[in-house]
Design a protein around this nucleic acid. Structure first.
Lengths: 154, 154
DNA sequence: TTCAATTAGTGGCATATACCACTATTCCGG
DNA sequence: CCGGAATAGTGGTATATGCCACTAATTGAA
């Protein structure tokens, strides 16, 4: 009897997702490694690039990432001179982020490498299936998992 | 004009996958938090449980995880007394892993919490779509990304 | 049998990512 | 205008994960 035949049982969606993420990340990381960036860093530079000097909170939302995690991830990029932060003029709580010239050059350099990985992946799974996969993943990302509390307090 | 309308361009599959993984992991993590375990730790205990005192390398392969990463991840579980390692009788290089009684109890306790998360997720996206998603993710995991070297040296 | 090559893990280091506690600002009701 | 509530980030701590260098053990070929 197959394990998956047990009624009501399904393999952990979370574990399956993380496993795939590990594997795919390693592939993208390997391909863009000559740039010295990791996949996450590249994605972050790209987000900053397409945003209009976005606030940290804005980036965190777009990347569905914890704000403090973003802060930590940003540090090596600041240290290496790819991005810089500055206070918002109207709200001094807000820190905005922009690419430096060096960062922009690095982004362009890395994009060339990235497109190898992207094309290779889509050649393997097919463009349509890749698009389908992204659509499902975006759906997972946008889901509202909130379980309404049984007894709302107050 | 839409960004995605640019021919040949598609959003980064890797970034999309990681983003979804962050979100879903946070959900599973939140639900099983009362057990004191993280999703990865739970998955790891489960792998050890279903294996027959698996060697570390075997677990790493099954989880598609770097062997040293597995070693690091195992440490807090050993520290907390959930798992223990021992040398293989026939090959002293090999370290095998098993659950302790405490670890087994923790696994059972956490499985109850896990099934809430699993069921909630599948209620939201549908059992069939969840199965489809896992199938696609497994495919991504199993892909052979190797690009044949242009000029094989030697 | 003996030594080079391979295999299995470990430890160090770096990034990825989360939560919590804390600070600095801003906002808002009275 | 003032003080409490809300908002934006930072820093600390812990796990997650990978690569590299290194050790220990096994294997294999001369």
């Amino acid at each position: 009897m197959t394990k998956t035949a047990m009624p009501g049982f399904s393999p952990c969606n979370n574990a399956t997702l993380r496993r795939a993420a590990r594997k795919l990340s390693r592939f993208y990381d390997d391909v863009i490694a000559p740039s010295g960036l990791k996949g996450t860093q590249y994605g972050l530079l790209y987000q900053i690039y397409v945003g209009s000097e976005p606030a940290m909170g804005t980036i965190a939302e777009e990347m569905v990432m914890d704000l403090s995690a973003l802060g930590h991830t940003l540090k090596p990029l600041i240290r290496d001179g790819y991005v810089e932060t500055f206070a918002d003029k109207d709200d001094r709580r807000v820190r905005r982020v922009r690419l430096t010239l060096l960062g922009l050059a690095k982004l362009e350099e890395t994009t060339k490498l990235w497109s190898f990985a992207q094309q290779r992946f889509e050649a393997l799974v097919g463009q349509q299936r890749a698009a389908d996969l992204r659509a499902m993943l975006d759906e997972v990302t946008e889901l509202d998992y909130e379980v309404p509390p049984a007894a709302p307090s107050s």
